[in-house]
Write a protein that binds this DNA or RNA. Structure first.
Lengths: 260, 260
DNA sequence: CGCAAGAGCGTACATCGTACGTAGACGAGC
DNA sequence: GCTCGTCTACGTACGATGTACGCTCTTGCG
């Protein structure tokens, strides 16, 4: 998400450092040179791509260092010449997805259309990797808050999108952060629905069915029960899309209406 | 999050099952009886509470089955009498947090105030466990989509909060989902900032500092560079709070303005 | 050509979740 | 009160994971 890159600055400002990259550069993978002096057989890009392919095909749980190495025809420990920890790998993957999330340039001249377009592309990129948002969002807790090239480009594009908004800088950052939060949360839930096996019908025994009915019939949850007895809404993906668009519209229209 | 419980119905409807609990009840921990026939030494509540305490004190990584067992004075494998998998444990923990997130009744009569209050309490509960939102949000992918008592109460309260909104049922559900998405995304980022070590100043060597400066000076990221040279914004927690409130206000006001 | 150091990667270890099975405890029925 | 069946407690062991450590071969520079 672009909050990844956003937080570079956000975190930096909030800890009183004026120049973002300076303070975080020492331990981040982005500041560590990749093996290159001796025609190395592998590369960080290839490692990340192998990991991405495995996760997309089988889910993130299938991504182990051994598995990636096998896919590359490498020894497991060879990978540690390129990255120090598995978390490093996740940083690479997230950056790749952010690069994938870039909207085509030039952006629409209207800032609202531009922001919506960026948001849609971001959402679409992560939806192509439904496992990603949960896996990648938290690992930064253990990583220095710094963005790679993909993240920086994404942040740059996001800032460019709202450059024409009649808001001061802080309000623009707030708007980007709020939209980003909304996208991230939306993706958490969308990913869950997109995951095979979620909510798959379970064989129900009558005793266990009674358990569920009893809870709704208990009178403790009148609103839930009222909802449960209503008819089913529209289809999955289209309803998710429509809901996402509704939330996006509310946020963008709402931000435009807030006194600068 | 209340989307956990929300998705009970959401998922159900989207898969064409009319009665939510029926379809999901077979494999969920909530339908499996807890040991009780022989004065068991432990309980699910105690197991979940021990796990919560460890996570709060040391982060979620410290929560292993062995660790929980040690905290309870139990054998590790004893825990499997109460839960089948560690994921079961996460379900219990999330339900406990949702229970903690309930706003005090009676809710304000005004639906907008009620929804905002519920949202604030939900946010506050999860912020007391900064590790939680990332850890818990995804595990449901492997779990039947069903809510426990805390989740159902939270959903009930959320539905009650918006019962007075001039929106039809689908629009109310959309609003709840959108607000919930926003909260979840916000918490992901807030949690990251709240995690010790994030963005901690790293000792910077001059060579590495040059790396950061060079990227910003390259001219590739004019908007980011412009931002980096601006002054630092206000303090952490208060800015996070303000931003959350701004987003919440935009969403609620915006939803009220959307034609029902 | 020689040498230093960089790339490759095998071995081994600590840790994790949990399958499987044994033993003791407890409650129901007589 | 006694017996028996089954419920609770939990030890042992296994497969899987990330990665520390160190040896070997390869490559580029002087």
């Amino acid at each position: 998400m672009y909050a990844l890159a956003y937080d570079v600055l956000y975190t930096t400002y909030n800890r009183g450092t004026v120049v973002a990259a300076n303070r975080t550069v020492a331990a981040t993978i982005w500041a560590r040179p990749e093996p290159a002096a001796r025609n190395p057989r592998f590369s960080r890009d290839r490692i990340a791509a192998a990991a991405l392919a495995i996760a997309d095909a089988e889910g993130f749980e299938a991504v182990s260092m051994r598995r990636i190495a096998a896919a590359l025809g490498a020894g497991t420990m060879s990978l540690y010449r390129y990255i120090q920890t598995k978390d490093d790998l996740l940083v690479l993957i997230d950056d790749a997805i952010l690069g994938e999330a870039l909207a085509p340039e030039p952006l629409p001249a209207d800032w609202r259309a531009a922001l919506a377009l960026v948001a849609r592309h971001t959402r679409a990129a992560y939806l192509r990797h439904p496992w990603a948002v949960r896996v990648l969002q938290g690992i930064q807790a253990a990583q220095p808050a710094v963005a790679g090239p993909g993240g920086l480009r994404h942040l740059e594009q996001s800032l460019a999108a709202v450059a024409g908004a009649p808001l001061d800088t802080a309000a623009r950052l707030d708007l980007l952060a709020i939209v980003d939060d909304y996208i991230a949360g939306h993706l958490l839930h969308a990913a869950r629905l997109a995951t095979p096996g979620t909510g798959v019908p379970q064989p129900a025994t009558s005793a266990r069915a009674d358990f569920g009915q009893a809870r709704l019939a208990s009178g403790e949850y009148p609103h839930v029960a009222g909802l449960a007895s209503a008819g089913p809404p529209a289809d999955d993906a289209s309803m998710l899309d429509a809901r996402f668009e509704l939330g996006l519209r509310i946020l963008i229209d709402g931000a435009a209406a807030v006194p600068g």
